Amino acid sequence: MSRTQDVLAATSEGALSEYLAEEIHRRILTGDIRVGSWLRQDTLAAEFNVSRTPVREAVRALGGRGVLEIIPRRGALVIGSTPRDIRENYEVRAELEGFAAELAAERIQTAQLTALRAAVDDFDGIVAAAAAPDAADRDGELESRWTDANERFHATLLEAADNAHLAASVRESRRRLPHNTTFAALSGSQRQLTINAADHRAILEAIEASDGEKARRLARQHLLRAADLVTRRFERELEVQRRAR
C-alpha cells in the first residue's frame, strides 16, 4: 500500500475532502496536473479509491482558493498558481504574521507561552531526527511531526495576538497554498531545517522578552525566507516539467 493509500485509510470522513484538496493542489503546483487541463472527478475518485462526494467537495474548495474555475455543465478548469502568486502570498503573510508576533509579545498568556516552547522543542527534535542515518526511511514521519509543530506554533502565535480580524486574514492567506509546501522545500537540506528551527526559537525568545519590534522583524524574515525556498522549489519543478514536454 502506498503512503497516500495509508493516509486515506486512516483519514476520517470529515477530513477526507480536505486531504484530497491538499493533494490535488500540490499536484497542480508541481505541474503533475497541468494548468489549462480539466479535472475529471470520476477519474480522481477512481485514483484515490473514494466516492465522488469528497472529490466534489475538494474541487469546490479549490474553486474557492482560485486554483480551479468551476464552469457549469463543463467541469473544473485548472488555473493553478504561478511562482509569483506563491511569493506574493508569502509576502502578505510575512507582514500579517509579523504583526501577530508583535501583538503576541505584548499579550501572550502563560499557557500560550508554554505551547510555543513545546513546539520549538519539537522543531529541535525533528532537526536531530533528520540527521540520523535512517532519516530518509522516516521522511513521512518527519513531515508529519514538522507539520504538527508548525501548525501549533503559528496557531498559538495568532491566538496570543488576540485579534480576530488579523487571524481571519492570515487563515485566508494560508488556505491558498497546501500546508506541506514549506517542509517539502526544507526536507532536502539539513542546513535549512536547522535554520528554520532556529527562526522559531528566535521568535519565541523575542516574545519571552516582550520585545514586540524584534518579534515582528524576526517573524517577517522567517516568512520571507520560506517564500524564497518554496518559490525556488516550484520554479525548478516547473522547469523540469517544461523540459519533459
Score class of each variant (00 low, 15 high):
108 I>G: 15
113 L>A: 05
14 G>D: 07
240 V>E: 15
36 G>V: 07
57 E>R: 15
231 T>G: 15
81 S>N: 12
165 H>S: 07
106 E>I: 01
231 T>Y: 07
97 E>F: 01
155 A>D: 15
34 R>Y: 06
234 F>K: 03
155 A>E: 13
49 N>E: 14
35 V>A: 05
211 D>G: 02
73 R>I: 03
116 L>H: 02
223 L>W: 04
200 H>Y: 09
89 N>Y: 00
12 S>L: 01
15 A>K: 10
228 D>K: 07
62 L>G: 05
141 E>W: 07
136 A>I: 05
33 I>V: 15
126 I>P: 02
84 R>Q: 07
71 I>S: 13
75 G>V: 05
152 R>W: 11
67 V>P: 13
158 L>E: 08
63 G>H: 01
231 T>S: 15
108 I>D: 10
5 Q>M: 10
158 L>S: 06
67 V>I: 13
244 A>K: 09
71 I>T: 11
245 R>E: 15
49 N>C: 10
64 G>A: 01
85 D>C: 09
47 E>A: 11
34 R>A: 10
38 W>S: 14
3 R>A: 08
211 D>Q: 02
76 A>V: 02
125 G>I: 02
192 Q>L: 14
209 A>F: 06
63 G>Y: 00
57 E>P: 11
11 T>S: 08
46 A>I: 00
111 A>K: 02
142 L>C: 12
228 D>W: 14
165 H>K: 08
70 I>K: 13
145 R>S: 10
200 H>G: 12
194 T>Q: 08
19 Y>Q: 10
106 E>G: 04
179 H>W: 05
196 N>I: 00
118 A>G: 12
7 V>P: 15
129 A>Q: 06
170 V>S: 04
160 A>P: 04
217 R>Y: 06
93 R>A: 08
66 G>K: 01
159 E>D: 14
170 V>K: 03
66 G>A: 02
134 D>F: 08
134 D>G: 04
230 V>C: 11
199 D>P: 09
206 A>V: 00
58 A>Q: 05
241 Q>D: 09
68 L>N: 01
183 F>I: 01
47 E>P: 13
36 G>D: 10
190 Q>T: 14
59 V>K: 00
147 T>S: 11
198 A>R: 09
95 E>Q: 03
54 P>N: 04
139 D>P: 14
199 D>E: 12
34 R>I: 11
203 I>R: 06
93 R>C: 08
29 L>T: 03
103 L>Y: 07
21 A>R: 04
240 V>I: 06
58 A>F: 00
119 A>I: 05
203 I>S: 02
178 P>Y: 05
224 L>G: 00
9 A>H: 14
22 E>A: 00
65 R>L: 05
117 R>V: 04
207 I>E: 13
86 I>M: 04
238 L>D: 11
222 H>M: 03
